[in-house]
Design a protein around this nucleic acid. Structure first.
Lengths: 248, 248
DNA sequence: CGTTCGGTTGAGCTTTGTCAAACCGCGTGG
DNA sequence: CCACGCGGTTTGACAAAGCTCAACCGAACG
């Protein structure tokens, strides 16, 4: 059971707009059910009916797609506070798998609930629209990453992106964070082989840009990393000026 | 000036849901201003204020991004009926350039108008949400294409996607269509060099899968092409079942 | 008729992938 | 406590895919 104080989604949404009490209540109502899943478990398979969305309370989850030839592409990486499946609101069946990387707590809620929420609050409708748009901007950046950057640049860019995204949710994050992904998984995100990811990490480490200890990543020289990756964080920002008021 | 009969956006939107008269009027009101641009002109530059959206009445447009190193990545290709800039609704400034490939007719309308439209019709709000979600699915498919497919597969997939998208708008499209993109541009879409695009085309042509004459592309063997590309059109479909009624 | 632009072709090179072996940390069970 | 096995990482040797450069061709256009 979720109470207002521990709602991850409210915390996440509050980053984009100040929420009224009733808006907070509406959002919290999405987290009535709670489920813990073990690492590497399939939360929802591609092709399954998209009856539910899921808020992600803790843990990491990826959206991935398997190809005919046995390869895999990771579409998106989710961290706590995000909503899984928003993208597929317009589809009967899922277009990709949601798989947990770590143990994770998710709160499934039916599609219907979001429509009801839309009916009750124009402001939250806008906010969902806005968050969908922001996710889309992340995808766009991933496209650029995949299409036109070298392996080193890809890895650097990815590490910076995750750092930035975690920083948004956690104001006091330093330059170190835990990245619970295998190099195979990172490769599947960046369109690289795991071997080449390893080599790229080695290179960045040797050049003094990076430090690693288990899953802990420390970015030693943000400036130079950004330079290498051509990283510009504006796509992770957001403009709430067009949000409809007044609050519900 | 736009009349109801020649509105491309209405025609496009009607593919996803039956529209009431007042909904049609609302959509048409977005196309009050009309502007013709020559090929290769920049409609809106990255970094510019996103004051306007644009409906695309005729011609082809790409969204592209330029990198530090002089490279270019094409994010998305737009055909008539689509709305340019929807993706950036949540951003003050544009994240990519919109550039026309051909002569094109666009209808700029202010961001405000869309908010007003949202206020007047919950159904159209949903429809915009839905179309945004579909665009996102296209991006997801591009990610898979960029990350995990070989050059030949990329090209085949791209040609099938464009064919499919054009077929949706034009019921009586055969297996031939005009693709007004240079191979350089296709390469920038697929993360390939123009030279390699040329070689891939040559290969597909030699294998009897494809025929070319100028910009005209004929897909000779859809079956086999789909097989090569791992193409599955479901991501281009859409589920309007959750659309709110009744119509305005 | 020359110029320009896009497409094609070949040669050589760079990046990245593949395969295989070794390695490392960790948890398990003897 | 130690041996073992397992999953993930690292390393090296080699192969393949794709890139760059440069030359050339043909069509469109002034």
């Amino acid at each position: 059971m979720s109470s207002r104080s521990d709602s991850c989604i409210v915390c996440h949404f509050s980053h984009y707009a100040t929420l009224s009490d009733s808006e907070v209540d509406l959002l919290c109502s999405l987290e009535r059910n709670e489920k813990t899943v073990s690492p590497q478990s399939m939360i929802r398979a591609s092709g399954e009916k998209t009856a539910n969305f899921y808020t992600l309370k803790s843990g990491w989850v990826v959206a991935e797609q398997h190809l005919e030839n046995g390869q895999r592409q990771v579409i998106d990486v989710f961290v706590p506070g995000q909503v899984l499946g928003l993208r597929e609101i317009a589809y009967h069946t899922g277009l990709c798998n949601f798989t947990s990387l770590t143990e994770a707590v998710i709160c499934p809620f039916p599609k219907r609930s979001i429509v009801e929420l839309f009916e009750k609050s124009a402001r939250l409708t806008d906010l969902f629209f806005l968050i969908l748009a922001r996710e889309q901007a992340t995808l766009v950046e991933r496209i650029v990453n995949l299409g036109r950057r070298s392996a080193i640049e890809k890895v650097a860019h990815f590490l910076l992106e995750m750092h930035e995204r975690l920083s948004i949710a956690n104001d006091e994050l330093g330059n170190t964070y835990r990245l619970p992904m295998t190099q195979r998984c990172i490769g599947d995100t960046l369109g690289l082989s795991s071997v080449h990811v390893s080599r790229s990490f080695a290179r960045l480490t040797m050049d003094g840009l990076l430090q690693r200890a288990g899953n802990e990543i420390t970015l030693l020289d943000l400036e130079r990393l950004r330079d290498i990756a051509g990283f510009d964080a504006t796509y992770l920002g957001i403009d709430q000026s067009w949000l409809r008021g007044p609050k519900v």
